[in-house]
Design a protein around this nucleic acid. Structure first.
Lengths: 183, 183
DNA sequence: CGACTCATGTAATATGTTACATGATTAA
DNA sequence: TTAATCATGTAACATATTACATGAGTCG
């Protein structure tokens, strides 16, 4: 899956500019493209080339011009086709696990400090995410079912954090109970 | 963090060839470089350039030559320095969440089918991972503490799968209870 | 005999990040 | 007046994936 499908999805709800798309993606905890200018503007040009979206320039006085993109019928077909395709498996990159893997050569208290710092970091991230969700999150709510879908999605994000926190706590207990045997 | 640190870590346990490194990374569920030729051989050249590792060519009769890399004192220092650096936060890419996000335009039974397929897929992946762990996994075990560390790491991987499974089940229940309101 | 493992590497392509460039408006 | 937001885009670089190229040995 690529950023293009996410863009088609967003445009299926309402027409948007590249700038709008960027902001939504930047705020989103699961559209993992970090709101990247380069990729978004490129993807929009490509999607327009394929006829999946149509850009309309709006000149405005005393404000920069916009290019508002609208999804086409072909775009909607492509989107639906992708929606029905087999789910992909998640990919998790946890550099901290790699770090822990070689922590053998540290003292136990240093390892515990790392684990504690990790737990803290996750707790902070999770709190920020919760705050963001309370303050207002992007979530189309055209029907009760759509609202439920988005609740489920944001719930997944929080569960991931929660699982990581639990793990960190249990890891601290496990490692804390070991004798120091650093090299 | 980059692949170089993972390589330094692996070489800190025992000297290895690029091929060995590739195999270990390919098998590992958390060294997320998928056992990539290109990156590994490049990284080794770079590490050698910095003096962190030393390659020794072993010519063998009736078998291809090997280049066995050994970590240097400077490499060990660099590794330890990185080990003590602040933990990075995990990055999760879950394309399925993006797919779900726009499933509004599907019928409820189609959404449930997707969720079910996802749950199945995760269950399969988790089972494969468990089987791999039982069969034998890469894990240096020079001390009881090191064994505990690696247990904790592999435990994290299984917990992630488990959390995702739980989420999928609860999502199926939630969405299953909704009226069909597809567009 | 054909497929697989061992073993090294390169090339082409895809994807992702950071920074740059431009310029108007608005709020502190 | 300085910083932030709105709005478009490009350039340079970093990282990752897939495939290619070569060649010997082993296993069924």
């Amino acid at each position: 899956m690529s950023i293009s499908h996410a863009i088609l999805g967003l445009l299926s709800v309402e027409p948007m500019t590249g700038y709008d798309l960027k902001k939504v993606m930047q705020e989103s905890p699961f559209m993992h493209w970090s709101g990247n200018n380069n990729q978004i503007y490129k993807a929009l040009v490509e999607l327009a080339g394929k006829g999946y979206v149509q850009g309309e320039v709006k000149h405005r006085e005393s404000a920069p011009s916009k290019k508002v993109y609208t999804i086409t019928k072909e775009g909607l077909v492509e989107l639906k086709c992708w929606l029905l395709s087999a789910p992909e498996t998640p990919e998790m990159k946890k550099p901290f696990l790699v770090q822990l893997a070689w922590s053998h050569q540290l003292e136990t208290r240093e390892i515990l400090a790392l684990l504690e710092a990790y737990r803290q970091e996750i707790a902070v991230q999770m709190a920020m995410e919760q705050a963001k969700q309370k303050k207002g999150r992007y979530a189309p709510a055209r029907t009760a079912r759509e609202t439920a879908i988005w609740n489920v999605i944001y719930g997944n994000v929080l569960r991931s954090y929660s699982a990581e926190l639990d793990w960190a706590s249990s890891a601290i207990e496990t490692i804390g109970g070991m004798k120091d045997e650093s090299v």
